[in-house]
């Protein structure tokens, strides 16, 4: 009999239970979203009617539109900012205040989000900024930056400067080096970072809830409102749609990161 000293008896079972626990809530939500009954936990039959109800709910569609608008703009701004910062911090020579700049770029990760939310709320009220969408975009851009930054930095750090030096050696100007060598090679990292930033923005509740005013309700804030009114099958349907979208995005992002890692 082969004996593997690395194996621990019972560990497999524990891991199985763990994954069960990890996916149970998601499975429950998805399962009950197909429940025909009004009451969430009374199963009376299969139905898609709650999806119909969800998709024809104009408040929900508005919330999705707000979330998408904010997330897309914040992701674009955050990714661009993060890309530039990563290029300087990883590739730049003799950068002044390099460590301090790294801390500043990652600041949102070092602070509890509720503090950030309170801070921007007070700021916007003080400077009299009333455009709800603009407030959301500004705040989301800030907290998305580190999520975009970290994968890009990891990718850049994992890439030998030899490629860029070889390009310079072959008469490429700095801009050509960036466009033809650096950018194509770190693109998986940029994609992963953008994806992460997008999901973080779409997912955000604390800041968006604090800034929510009038017509600018994001999806999580809208869902929060629904939850407070009680659990409904329609809520399950909405949640299932969100789960499906997140899993799709996650799969794309993770496969990009893994493929990137495999190559280098």
């Amino acid at each position: 009999m082969r004996q593997d000293v690395r194996r621990y008896p019972g560990l497999g079972l524990l891991v199985l239970l763990f994954f069960g626990w990890l996916y149970l809530p998601i499975a429950v939500v998805i399962g009950f979203s197909f429940n025909e009954n009004r009451l969430v936990s009374v199963w009376t039959g299969f139905s898609l009617k709650w999806y119909g109800a969800a998709l024809s709910n104009s408040a929900l569609v508005d919330a999705v539109r707000t979330s998408l608008t904010v997330a897309l703009i914040a992701t674009a701004l955050a990714t661009l900012t993060a890309l530039m910062a990563a290029l300087v911090l990883v590739r730049g020579r003799d950068v002044r205040a390099r460590r301090l700049s790294e801390v500043v770029v990652n600041l949102p990760l070092l602070l509890p989000e509720i503090v950030v939310a309170v801070a921007v709320l007070i700021l916007f009220s003080q400077i009299g900024l009333t455009n709800g969408l603009l407030k959301l975009i500004l705040a989301h851009t800030a907290f998305c930056i580190p999520f975009a930054f970290l994968p890009i930095r990891a990718r850049l750090q994992g890439m030998t400067p030899d490629f860029e030096e070889a390009a310079q050696d072959l008469y490429a100007s700095p801009w050509v080096v960036f466009r033809r060598v650096t950018l194509p090679l770190i693109l998986p990292g940029v994609f992963a970072g953008a994806m992460l930033a997008f999901v973080m923005s779409m997912d955000d509740f604390i800041t968006s809830n604090m800034l929510a005013s009038g017509g600018n309700t994001t999806l999580p804030v809208y869902i929060f409102g629904l939850i407070k009114q009680g659990t409904t099958p329609e809520l399950n349907a909405i949640s299932t749609l969100i789960i499906a979208a997140s899993l799709l995005l996650a799969t794309i992002a993770l496969s990009l990161t893994f493929r990137g890692r495999g190559k280098s």
């Binding site: 993060a82 921007v120 007070i122 930056i145």
Partner: peptide, 29 residues
């Protein structure tokens, strides 16, 4: 040496991050 021949990039490359963080995080806190 990627950024070596564009020393100005060292400054303006970090500028957006500093401006955004300064305005929406450091100042508000």
């Amino acid at each position: 040496s990627g950024a070596r021949f564009r020393p100005d990039f060292r400054l303006w490359g970090l500028l957006p991050a500093w401006v955004i963080m300064g305005f929406t995080l450091i100042l508000p806190i």
